[in-house]
Design a protein around this nucleic acid. Structure first.
Length: 585
RNA sequence: GUCCCCGUAGCUCAAUCGGAUAGAGCGCUGGCCUCCGAAGCCAGAGGUUGGAGGUUCGAAUCCUCCCGGGGACGCCA
């Protein structure tokens, strides 16, 4: 069981006679900020004083007296204005570690019905090369999906592809007029990419071409059979192209329901909004307005609007992405019955989502929680959007290649003893891991400065550092010629005599807490911070406590167990971030 | 003009619904390989958390105002 949850349950019981909201106050139990305060601290007495009055230290004492079971505590002390500092017994820690070591999973079994989450991320436009702008949504979304799954959620990941946009007009126009049959036959995907770039370039200088491409899009949307046939021909090639990149990133989706999927539902969506009198005609378009609830008017006697209107149908009859998003909400709710729908989309679309969620609620979707998980942009060291030296967009594929190339150069230099094949494998794991971790380790809301040297560095809070700690850990088992699977078939007794052993033990038990934190706030950096802290605690242990040369067989086995649990935790934690590990590097 | 996000060490960033003395990395200074991987570890210096008020036992965190940066704002998605 998760230690923190256990302590909170204990304190909730102790608080029950004192307040009507024991669970709320029990949330003030948390890991100690400083080891000198103990392992955990309960900060419930001070806020409770607001409700009960009196002296918070006396309240703290009452809480302690009410604790139903104090056997897991080495000490319980009241400090300062009423902090309750808790120190766990080594027996309690050892017991939990033993359970973990003997279990297949590092995570507590979940109880109760699993909540369902639909998570929408990545969402590139097909038929256009993916670029650096798609990176954050893809990586953060995938990590959040994995973390929630690990915590027992029923997670449905959905890639809301842009597969019905103007790029198809360009492709269709290009296919008709500039196609190279030989190339199209040999590699249709490459030919499509070439045609897209070609028409895009032509259109920038030639209004006639731009117009022709737009007309093809309109024909497609109107259901023109020939254009629809071409669309159906192109789509598998486009998807194949996307999946190749997702494979490299080790990312998969449960669904890829793009704009085209919802296209048949849009008219009905608009109609429903109109019937419910949520949307009204305005200047030929169909709009949802957001009047200020106060009913205040401006100088021209118009009711003040909180936002610009959401346009459901344009004056030319075309539907907008807002309509598509509403249709997708209806579909997702009916199809998956989610408790929450999460959108991992950049921060610039906050207003759109604010409007979308408000309209959805009004439309009747009140039993589902909506979350916009926003993030900032990727910039270069100059703080401007990340571009190539020539000022162009950085392709995602090239970015991955460069990460691997840079990692390969490091590995070649540092580990010449590994075979070329193994160095290449290591480079791929390190390169991709570095790119992902650099993104995930930062508070997602800030802009993030893309810096190759920093992300592949072995110093500091990087994937490479964690992978290195993991590999060093595994080398202990290799050097000792110990196979973990057979060695731990009989569980050794764990002893925590040295402070570094104890510190490592404590943090090992906090892995589930870090996941809950990361999941609760949709902040993967909570998990990266935990893994970095764990790696540092392990380094302290590794420095202070010889493992293979431990003074006794039993201590050796105990320390091997701590190594093994550390390795499992780092491996699992990185896996939940979508990052792989290698046994040697 | 309205609204949203951000402002923390020289630089890049953390900080668990408000908690004890605000923490890391880089860079800087010094120390550690007859010792399980030195791509490493340890120690040190470095702060008026943009500013001013307020709320309270307690504020980087909440409220108000101001300054600075970014972004969004009717027929693109």
């Amino acid at each position: 069981m998760n230690v923190l949850d256990h302590l909170r349950a204990l304190f909730a019981d102790a608080l029950r006679p004192l307040t009507e909201r024991p669970e709320d106050y029990a949330l003030h139990v948390r890991p100690a900020q400083d080891p000198k305060f103990g392992d955990y601290q309960a900060n419930c007495a001070m806020p409770l004083r607001k409700e009960l009055g009196g002296n918070p230290r006396e309240i703290a004492q009452k809480i302690i007296d009410n604790l139903p079971d104090q056997s897991i505590f080495e000490s319980i002390e009241i400090a300062g204005p009423g902090f309750i500092n808790l120190c766990l017994t080594s027996d309690a820690l050892v017991g939990e570690l033993g359970t973990l070591l003997g279990s297949d999973s590092l995570l507590p079994a979940t109880s109760g019905p699993a909540p369902t989450m639909v998570i929408d991320y990545s969402s590139p436009n097909v038929a256009k090369p993916m670029h650096v702008g798609h990176l954050r949504s893809t990586i953060i979304g995938d990590a959040l999906a994995r973390i929630h799954r690990a915590l027992g959620w029923n997670v449905i990941s959905d890639n809301h592809l842009g597969d019905w946009g103007t790029q198809f007009g360009m492709l269709i126009h290009g296919w008709r007029h500039y196609r190279d049959d030989a190339k199209a036959k040999e590699n249709p995907l490459a030919e499509l990419a070439r045609l897209y770039r070609h028409v895009n370039e032509l259109g920038e200088n030639d209004p006639v071409v731009a117009r022709a491409a737009r007309d093809e899009t309109v024909k497609l949307h109107e259901g023109d059979e020939e254009n629809l046939a071409l669309w159906k021909e192109f789509m598998p090639w486009c998807l194949e192209d996307l999946h190749r990149i997702y494979d490299r990133l080790d990312i998969r989706f449960d669904h890829e329901l793009g704009e085209s999927f919802y296209q048949p539902m849009l008219a009905e969506t608009a109609k429903s909004l109109e019937e419910k009198q949520m949307a009204t005609p305005s200047d030929g378009a169909l709009c949802v307005f957001f009047p200020d609830p106060s009913g205040k008017t401006d100088d021209d006697d118009n009711v003040i609007q909180r936002f610009a209107p959401m346009i459901v149908r344009k004056a030319d009859g075309a539907f907008t992405y807002a309509t598509t998003d509403l249709a997708s909400i209806r579909y997702r709710v009916e199809e998956f019955q989610p408790d929450v729908i999460v959108y991992v989309v950049d921060d610039r679309q906050s207003l759109h989502f604010q409007q979308l969620f408000e309209v959805a609620e009004k439309w009747g979707y009140t039993d589902v929680q909506f979350e916009h998980v926003a993030f900032g942009k990727i910039t270069g060291k100059d703080g401007k959007p990340y571009k190539t030296r020539q000022g162009g967009t950085v392709g995602l594929e090239m970015l991955l290649d460069e990460g691997i190339t840079r990692a390969k150069a490091s590995v070649d230099e540092i580990s010449p003893d590994l075979s070329e094949e193994e160095r290449q494998q290591v480079a791929e794991v390190v390169g991709i891991g570095a790119i992902k971790y650099a993104d995930l380790s930062q508070n997602r809301i800030s802009d993030y400065i893309f810096d190759w040297d920093k992300m592949i560095s072995l110093n500091g809070n990087t994937a490479t550092y964690l992978q290195y700690v993991y590999a060093r850990n595994r080398s202990i088992f290799r050097r000792g010629e110990i196979d973990p699977a057979t060695f731990f078939a009989t569980l050794p007794e764990i002893v925590l005599d040295h402070p570094s052993e104890r510190a490592l033990a404590l943090i090992l038990l906090q892995f589930p807490e870090s996941l809950q934190q990361a999941a609760g706030d949709f902040k993967p950096n909570m998990l990266t911070t935990y893994l970095f802290d764990l790696a540092n605690a392990y380094n302290g242990f590794f420095r202070d406590c010889p493992v293979l040369k431990a003074p006794s067989e039993s201590l050796r086995a105990s320390r091997l167990a701590l190594c093994e649990l550390t390795a499992r935790t780092i491996r699992t934690g990185l896996d939940l971030l979508g990052i792989k590990t290698v046994e040697r590097m």
